[in-house]
């Protein structure tokens, strides 16, 4: 079998040599290793004071985008729900009425759009499946809560606020 790394050693059941049975060289070797770590920089980020920067493609909780005129992109086609491997997305579609053209971009829109954040695995497949560039994952973390029902995010939490737009240009695929 081919070894997975170049550091792997084949285990052999051989008699230990005297040096190995003395055990002390091995102890000293181990102590030198730990001593070397004393002088290494610690990998810890002191969280509340220093925040670690998220990668631009970090997959946090979702956002339902609006276009430049503030109309919701989502047309409730259901492709995201089909693509979702965790079956976290549910939605109810509705027809756009007269006078609602400012609110919704297409004739059909999602009346109810819910993502269960406890089921979601943040894989980003919904983002890939969306034909209307309506759903994106952001770099925001899902907040903790004491209640399970708080984790079902409805449209109130998902749809982008016009006064607090989320920049997703970095995560849009460039073709």
């Amino acid at each position: 079998m081919k070894a997975l790394t170049n550091r792997s050693k084949v285990a052999v059941d051989k008699e230990l040599t005297l040096m190995e049975r003395l055990y002390f060289p091995a102890v000293l070797k181990g102590m030198m290793i730990t001593l070397r770590h004393v002088f290494k920089k610690s990998a810890t980020v002191k969280y509340p004071e220093v925040e670690k920067e998220f990668a631009p493609v970090y997959r946090g909780h979702h956002v339902l985008k609006r276009d430049e005129q503030g109309r919701e992109n989502c047309t409730a086609c259901g492709l995201c729900a089909v693509a979702c491997p965790a079956e976290a997305i549910t939605m109810t579609a509705a027809e756009r009425k007269k006078g609602e053209e400012k609110l919704y971009r297409e004739e059909k829109y999602a009346k109810v759009y819910e993502i269960n954040m406890l089921r979601c695995i943040f894989c980003g497949l919904c983002e890939e499946a969306c034909p209307k560039e309506a759903i994106f994952l952001t770099d925001e973390i899902v907040n903790a809560s004491y209640d399970r029902k708080d984790f079902v995010y409805g449209k109130d939490k998902l749809v982008e606020k016009m006064d607090n737009r989320i920049d997703i240009t970095k995560r849009q695929k460039k073709y």
Partner: peptide
């Protein structure tokens, strides 16, 4: 222990 394990 923290210093030896590259922690704080």
């Amino acid at each position: 222990s923290a210093i030896m394990q590259d922690r704080i």
